[in-house]
Amino acid sequence: MNSDRLLIFGIPALVAVLVHLLFVFALEGGWTTASPTITAQPQVVQASLVSLSKPKPQPKTKPKPKPKAVEPKPEPKPAPTPAPQVEAPPAEPIVEQPESTPEVSREERLAKLQRELMAGFEDLPDADEQVPNEEVNEVQQVAGLMQARITQNWRRPPSARNGMEVLLIISLVPTGEVVGISISSSSGSTAFDRSAIAAVERVTRFPEVTVLSISDFERYFRRFPLRFKPEDLRY
């Protein structure tokens, strides 16, 4: 009765182990794919300024990363959404005339700034915890690059306050050109709204999206909401 014994004990044991292995496998693989809310997240590119992590001795300096300074970053991580909140306290009032910075010291300040910016990114261990899988990782990276680009081009009016928020709907074509900007929900301040639109207009083109597959582009960046929300201001 060897075969019978095998049938009564072997098959159940095999099935029981298989069921659990399958479950663990599904959990490991499906933990991320089964959460569409996370994949939806990169659709909103938060253009909140990534502030510096350390209190600056000179209160007048305006953190204003130039494209030149930010580009050499090897792999700019998707800018963390929680970043502004985390680093809010030491942030500087950026509304104080940014352009008044003396031109001479700018180069070295930028270098220092970049280092600090990088350090700030490294200090955020939870920043990309929500990156679900490779595809979304890529999308989020692109979103991060776009965010950095917009952030660089955003000049906030002096009337900008914490808690203001404008949501733009941006339309792109697959080459990255901006073909449409519309205000989805206004902040209430015309100057603030206009500064947001101007930031996107100044960018004119997002070359980052060309690396994405066309299906990813259609899914995430054909029309996407863009939120401008300063949270690092003191008032």
Partner: peptide
């Protein structure tokens, strides 16, 4: 819990067969 789950699945399949 894992042990209980594996054992109960074992018994479930065995019962199905028997």
């Amino acid at each position: 819990l894992v042990a209980a789950s594996v054992t109960s699945w074992f018994m479930i399949v065995q019962r199905v067969i028997i």
